[in-house]
Nucleic acid binder design. Sequence first.
DNA 1: GCTGCCTGCCC
DNA 2: ATTCTGC
DNA 3: GCAGAATGGGCAGGCAGC
Length: 558
Amino acid sequence: MTSFLAFAELCQKVEATAGSLEKINLVAAFLSSLDEPELSVACSYVMGTIFPPSQSLAMGVGPSILYEALSKACGCSTEQIGEMLRATGDPGLVAAGVVEKRRPIGFAAFQESRPLSIADVSERFMAVARASGKKSQDIKVKNLQYLFSLASPLEARYIARLAIEDMRIGIGEGGMRDAIALAFHEIGADAERVEQAYNLTNDMGLVAVNARRGTLAELSIMIHRPIKMMLAQLGESIASALGEIGTAAIEWKYDGARVQIHKDADHVWIFSRRLENVTASLPEIVQTAKEIRAQSAILDGEAVAIGKDGRPMAFQDILKRFRRKYNVEKLAARIPLRLFLFDLIYLDGRSVTDLPLRERRDLLEKIADPGILADQVVSASKEAAEEIYRQALAAGHEGIILKNPASVYAPGKRGKNWLKIKPVMETLDLVVIGAKWGEGRRASLLGSYRLGCQDAATGNLLDMGFVATGFTDESLAELTEMFRELIVLEKGMEVEIKPAVIFEVAYEEIQKSPNYSSGYALRFPRMVAVRYDKSLEEADSLERVVSLYRGQRGRVIP
DNA sequence: GCTGCCTGCCC
DNA sequence: ATTCTGC
DNA sequence: GCAGAATGGGCAGGCAGC
C-alpha cells in the first residue's frame, strides 16, 4: 500500500522539474512501484482528473467548497485564505500554508492516525463525489476537512489541487502516455499503442492497468463507449490550406455543438465533445439517428439550432438544449436541432477509422439521407473554396473546414488533416476598467482585464466582459506595473482600475449578455494591442457595439 | 417557492 | 474556445 | 510542432438561504 505522501513527493519533484523527459522518467519510475488499483488511481491523479468520464461522477468541488473545507479544518478565516491566494496565486500553496499553521491536534489522536494512503484519499474523494441532496455540500466539506486535518503541508498541497482537479505539474495526457509507455515497455507498451488505447477508452487508469498486463490491444472501439473526437487545426488561409492538402474535402464549419452518435439496432446514445452522455437532452437527434440504415454505427457530426427562417440560431440557444433535463420537449419545439453528419467511425461491427476519409464518406452517404449530411465538395480550386466560404458565412456559420480526403480518422488528434478557416473579425477599442489577480504562472500579476465601452448618452463606461489572452508574459508584467498605480479599489481577487488605458480587442462574435451592464459581451476575446495612442473619448461606443452585433450574422466577405 | 451562488461543460 | 511558451 | 497552462462567455442543474 503506497502512502499519499509518496504520491505528493512525486508531484513535488515533477512540478519542480522543467524538462519533460525528466518529468516522464520520474512518473514512470513511480508507476512501476504501484499495485494495480493504485496504478489506476495514480495515473488519473497525476493528470489532475479524479474520475474517467465513463464513471459519470463529478467532484462538485470548486474553489468555494475547497476554501470552506480548508478554513474549517485549520481554523482560519476566509479572509486569510483570500490574502494567501492573492500572494501565492496557488490553491495548493494556500492549502499547504494553512495546514502548516493548523491548530495542533491532540497527541493521542495524532498517534492513532495512520499516514494517508492513496486509497484513503481516493475513498474520500469518492464520498465527496457521491454526496447529493440536502446537506450534500456539508458532506463534501467534511470529507475534505478530514483529509486536511490528517495531511502534512505537502500532502495538503496536492489534495487541494486534486479536489478542484487542477494539478498544474506539467503532466497531461501526452506526458502520462509517455510515462506509461516507459514504465511498461518491456511488456510491449509503446507511446503509439498507449495513445491509441487512451483515445478509444478515455480512461488513463484503465490504459495503464492494461499496459502492465500486456493487454492494450484488447481496448478497442465498442458501441456505447465514446471515443475521442478528431479535431481541426486553425489554418492560416484558404490558399495555404490548399497548399498543404492539395485536393481537399471542403465542408462548412457549423456554429453548433459536436455530437458522436452510437447506434445499435434501435438503441441510440449521443456523446458530447467531452464524451458526456447527452442522449436524454436531444430526442430529435435520437429519432434521426434511428433512421440510419445500419445495424450498428458510430457517427460524427454537428448539432445545429435552425430557426424558422432556416438560419442558424445563436449559439446561446444551443446551450439551452445541451444537458437539459427538464422541459426537454418544450425546448426542442422552440429550439429545434438539426444534425449534420460528416464522418463515420464504425459500421456494422467494424471500425472504419483506418479507411481514408473519402471511403468513409462514401459509406456514410450510403447509410444516411442527404438531409442529415454536411455538404462536402472535393476540390483543389481556391476559387471554389472561397465561394463555399462565402456561402457558409452568408448562411451565418463560422467558416469552412478543409480535410485531407486520404486521411484516416485519428481519434483525439488535432492535426493538419483537418484545417479550419475562420474570418478575422473587426476589433474594438475598449477601456480597461478593472482586473483580476492571476494564478499559477500569472501569480501576483493582473491576469485578466475588465473592459468597458462608452455610453454616449450618459458619458458612463459600461462593462462588457474580460480579456485574458493575447498577452506575452513580458507584456503582462509591464501592464501589471502600469495598472498598479491606477487601482482605485480592491476586493478579493478583483480590482477596480481608473479608466485611462485602451485595449484593442479581437473577438469571434458579439453576444447578448445578461451579466454585463452594456448588455453585450465578446465571444473569445483576445488583446491585440495596447492603444497608448488613443484617448478615453476615442474608445468604442455602445452604439457601435450594437450596430456590429446587428450586422455580424450572415456577414459578407468583400 | 424564489433567488443567487457554485460547478461543470458547451463553444 | 484562444493564445503563449518551453522543450 | 506538440503539449501544457492560463484564461474568455453563457447555459442548466443543484443546492443553500431566506
